[in-house]
């Protein structure tokens, strides 16, 4: 399979890359330069230079408040930086609206899953598709103009749902799914548009441990079928297990980069995490036992945030 070869080559080429923050990559898909965003005088994100290698899985880690999600928001057009520019697949995307970023092939998911609760699973999936002429107001009025494309979309959606084992739920409201199933749905929905780069914000947060393994499998599958993955995660075991390259952020800056094994032994990284996970050896399997605790924290945090968001729609 040529796809496999491409992935293999991309992974191998990373061996030669220096382990310094902001190092250039042999085949970068996303290149960010001088991206800075401050909230009330505090620099939430202050990235001098960062490159994301094509065809591999890159993990973005760092303690809470390191600016990972804000960096995601900036890259995908959900927030505007104070300064900075970035290029995705040869296209500069600074200041481009979120929807056009997604159209360019950079699709994201959210830390708090955004399943469209009062729509069915299948409708959620169809919404992820692109090039549906019926999404234009005037074309929508004449069904024959969009019905053929709708059939293609439905077939593709069903195939993806089968892959993610959600096909039995296709007519259920997305709001009735469990937290883990919603994560799967959101990921599957993002794939409807055949993105070049998938950005996953904490794909494991709040997911039932029984689903963890299949989620990991789906993410490596993505890479193996040619999609580049960038994800934010707190679960160090997962990071160590599936990522090809790890970028560490602290206080808005990139403090370390490298393959997972090396980075997690790095003194700077351990320092960055001090206070968050005291005496733990990062990436140690012992963390798996604590994984539940971390997840519970993330869940509690997510719930608190969801509550406030509900209050202020």
């Amino acid at each position: 399979m040529p796809a496999e070869q491409v992935v293999d080559q991309a992974r191998r080429s990373l061996h030669a890359v220096a382990r310094t923050p902001g190092v250039p990559k042999p085949d970068p898909l996303l290149v960010a330069d001088g991206v800075r965003r401050s909230f009330g005088g505090v620099n939430a994100v202050d990235v001098d230079h960062l490159e994301v290698q094509k065809h591999v899985i890159t993990a973005l880690i760092g303690p809470n408040g390191a600016g990972k999600t804000t960096f995601f928001n900036l890259m995908t057009g959900f927030d505007r930086p104070d300064t900075g520019s970035w290029v995705f697949d040869g296209t500069p995307l600074g200041g481009v609206a979120a929807s056009r970023v997604a159209k360019a092939g950079m699709v994201r998911t959210f830390q708090l899953t955004k399943a469209l609760a009062r729509m069915t699973v299948l409708e959620n999936m169809r919404l992820g598709a692109r090039d549906q002429p019926g999404e234009n107001l005037f074309t929508a009025l004449v069904k024959p103009l969009w019905a053929p494309r709708e059939r293609e979309i439905t077939d593709k959606a069903m195939a993806l749902l089968e892959r993610f084992k959600l096909d039995a739920k296709k007519d259920d409201f997305a709001g009735s799914l469990s937290g883990g199933q919603r994560k799967l749905l959101e990921m599957a929905r993002a794939l409807m548009s055949d993105p070049t780069l998938v950005m996953l914000d904490e794909p494991m947060a709040g997911v039932n441990p029984a689903l963890t393994q299949s989620l990991l499998g789906h993410i490596t599958d993505l890479r193996d079928t040619g999609t580049t993955v960038l994800f934010v995660e707190h679960d160090m075991h997962m990071v160590r297990h599936i990522s090809d390259w790890v970028v560490v952020m602290a206080q808005g800056q990139v403090v370390a980069e490298g393959p997972p094994g090396e980075v997690m032994a790095d003194q700077a990284v351990i320092d960055a995490y001090l206070g968050a996970h005291h005496d733990t050896d990062l990436g140690d399997d012992a963390l798996l036992d604590e994984g539940g605790v971390i997840d519970a924290e993330a869940e509690a945090e997510a719930e608190a945030e969801a509550d406030t968001e509900e209050k202020k729609p």
Partner: peptide, 20 residues
């Protein structure tokens, strides 16, 4: 499909934006 996009916006406009 037009109505579907609108319903998506009703549910969560950020999600719909993220879908392009």
């Amino acid at each position: 499909p037009w109505g579907r996009v609108l319903r998506g916006i009703r549910e969560d406009e950020d999600a719909v934006r993220a879908l392009g």
